[in-house]
Simulated assay, not measured.
Amino acid sequence: MDILPGELLRQIVSLCDFGSIIRLRQISRRLQYCANEVLFEQGKASIGNELLKDHESGCFVGREKLRMGKMTSFLRAYMHNLQVLRLADADCTLTLTNVCQLSQAVPNLACLEIIISGQLALEPDALRGLAMFRNLKELRISDWSPRMVIRKGGCYRQESLPPMPKLETLILESSRDSVTKILTQMRAEGICLPELRNIEPDQQVVSWGT
């Protein structure tokens, strides 16, 4: 591929999926430069266990787990203008610090999807960091069961979502009981989502007055 004209090579790389582009960066300096240009202009990324199949090919993938710190640094350096991010089946644990750092790495993110499975786990209150995403308009969370968080002095409360001033669509693909707990806690805390238009629990669209 090194003998191909630069523009043709760039067009070929732009047709590859995110995981393939990450792997192309490891082949040669020319491909790395070309892949970096394509990544900078890409608006979408899907990060999950497909990047763990070959642990040596991903610059932010360890032998067994997704390294959130390195992934965040990578997105900040090469995909700062990312608009859509999907975290699915990624073998890692999201912490509050991870989410806050991610918001700084991709400040223009408009759509975020988090699929919580047996691989991807959340630390208590990790999603509170979503308040740092200033331009987030659509949030999709699957299989999240909110837990009780014990605070200093023995007080406790239910996990919920933070204020997100520009959020327009919230999709909660969890049990109706979990969705009810999340919304009830948000209302109890007086959390306002002024731009919210729709909530979609269990595939049914329910309007929620704010």
Rank of each mutant, 00 (worst) to 15 (best):
L24S: 12
I21N: 04
G209H: 09
T97C: 10
R67C: 11
S160P: 00
K166T: 06
L120E: 03
L102C: 03
G62I: 00
Y156T: 07
S175K: 05
P5F: 14
R157H: 14
D2N: 14
M71T: 01
V13A: 06
A35Y: 09
G118S: 02
V61C: 12
H55S: 12
T95L: 01
G43F: 00
D89H: 04
I116G: 05
M132V: 07
C155I: 15
V99C: 09
K137V: 04
C59T: 02
Q101H: 10
T180V: 00
R23L: 10
R157G: 11
Q158E: 10
K70S: 03
T169E: 13
L51H: 01
F133P: 00
R128A: 08
F60S: 09
G153E: 06
L130N: 04
R151E: 13
L136Q: 06
G154R: 13
V206T: 13
L87A: 01
R197Y: 01
A88Y: 07
E200W: 11
A77W: 05
N81C: 07
V38H: 06
T72P: 03
V106P: 05
R128Y: 10
R128P: 00
C155Q: 15
L112G: 04
S178K: 06
N49P: 00
L51Y: 01
L127K: 10
K44W: 02
S145K: 15
P162Q: 08
P146A: 15
S57Y: 09
S28T: 13
L15I: 00
V205S: 14
L102H: 07
S160Q: 02
L96G: 13
N135F: 11
I199E: 08
Q83C: 00
D2F: 09
L170F: 05
S46G: 11
R187A: 13
L120V: 02
A121K: 14
T95Y: 03
A121S: 13
I116E: 03
R23C: 14
D143G: 08
R197K: 15
C111A: 04
L4I: 14
R67M: 08
E7S: 11
I114C: 01
I115F: 12
H55W: 08
N98M: 05
I171Y: 04
K181I: 09
L183P: 05
T72N: 11
T210V: 08
Q26K: 10
E159Y: 02
L94T: 00
Q42P: 00
T210W: 13
R30L: 10
E123F: 00
V61I: 15
E189R: 15
P162I: 07
E37V: 05
A126L: 03
C192H: 14
S14Y: 09
F133V: 05
